[in-house]
Design a protein around this nucleic acid. Structure first.
Lengths: 224, 224
DNA sequence: CCAAAGGTTTAGGTAAGTCTAACCTAGAGG
DNA sequence: CCTCTAGGTTAGACTTACCTAAACCTTTGG
């Protein structure tokens, strides 16, 4: 009933609707690399199945059912990523590609077993939150490193999982979720950022910095 | 290049060619539940790809390349079965269905990691041999329980993995690969067989007995 | 109120895998 | 050795699932 292509659309819609609601079909088309016509087509199908509310010229919004399906797939994806990383030592820059394929064929039973084995984890290896079995998800506050001011300390909360080259680089400088960093300085305009991680300085390109989400570190821990 | 459907054909051909060579297209059609026309069609495609030698009206035989592909898929399938069984405690009557889906999407890298984690195992949970990475396979001598005479002792070598109801029953009576049994008696014609397993007697239907492959137990261990 | 940006419709294409129905072939029995 | 039939093949068409290009329609903002 729900094809793999449909699942990919729902995942993309989930991602986009965190920024824009309703999601314009053009944004979807761009994100997925399909023509706008294809996207309109598929959106109508998904609306038929009551997974989306589709208003011509306005874009799409999830129905409750659609949101649940999307979260289920995302749960698959992120649990698989974490499982591969922890149980089979797959490097964190490879788990995304593997999970892309596995998420569509894994059974709920298998997923439950993996979740149990991992102790019902909250986050995947890139810091993205794993939706719970009943479809709730909690995303911690974070901001893109690109918007931060030099001279402050941050913790890495989450990084983009789909650029494996970037992940490999971040790995070499030790920039994982939970890692602390100091934003030393920012070159003007779209220039690179200079970071200090574990005592060593590194440069991070402007584009790369967009993919790193951080939270400010509390330097003093006095409560109010 | 090689689609999932093709992989399924190659698997089926591998199974059948253990009994008949060359494999008649009609046998394949019956085994897979497709029309003879569809099978002829696909066999021609696979021959195009140099995976099969196809002689019209005679049937198909693997090329070396085709055999390697078939063994690779079978290795995927059986390693996955064993992995699910050992690492995630999936019951042995369910692993086949899961493996059917996963075998088509798993990467070589992941497979290697699973194999390593399992210590390069020789057999899957049903006793079927796992082809080695370089495509060699060793199947121990065994005969179907259906052909054995009453009054003798046997070890279970292998059982069919695709009948999950049967597997569940065999599980309840403790009949796994490696288990010893005594064939107490056989009802005439196509009647059930009476077995003694771990001191308890059980009946096994005629059809079920076909799926159980055994080897005779050496009662005396004096060498010649 | 109108233009252009954005979105939709229509019509059409491709690819993979399947089937039906008509036809051919091999080989066994008369 | 010929013929009949079971088995196998061919041709053609269908389905499903997805995609596109190009023409057309709508919305929105100046």
């Amino acid at each position: 009933m729900i094809s793999q292509a449909m699942e990919d659309y729902l995942k993309a819609i989930y991602k986009l609707q965190q920024t824009i609601k309703p999601v314009p079909t053009s944004a979807l088309a761009e994100h997925m690399g399909f023509s706008p016509a294809s996207v309109t087509n598929m959106c109508k199908k998904l609306a038929e199945l009551n997974l989306l509310h589709y208003e011509p010229y306005q874009g799409v919004v999830f129905t409750e059912a659609g949101l649940q399906v999307a979260l289920e797939i995302i749960r698959h994806h992120r649990l698989i990523e974490l499982y591969l990383s922890k149980a089979l030592n797959v490097p964190w820059d490879q788990v995304h590609a593997e999970a892309e394929k596995l998420e569509h064929v894994i059974s709920e039973d298998l997923e439950d077993r993996m979740a149990e084995m991992l102790g019902d984890p909250q986050f995947d290896p890139h810091g993205a939150p794993i939706p719970s079995r009943n479809g709730t998800i909690f995303r911690p506050e974070s901001e893109s490193l690109i918007d931060m001011k030099a001279g402050n300390r941050f913790v890495v909360v989450e990084v983009n999982d789909d650029d494996s080259e970037l992940l490999r680089y971040l790995g070499t400088i030790g920039l994982y979720p939970g890692t602390e960093l100091l934003l030393v300085e920012r070159a003007p305009f779209d220039g690179p950022l200079t970071l200090k991680v574990a005592g060593k300085q590194h440069n991070l390109g402007y584009q790369a910095a967009k993919s790193v989400r951080v939270a400010p570190v509390e330097t003093s821990q006095e409560p109010s």
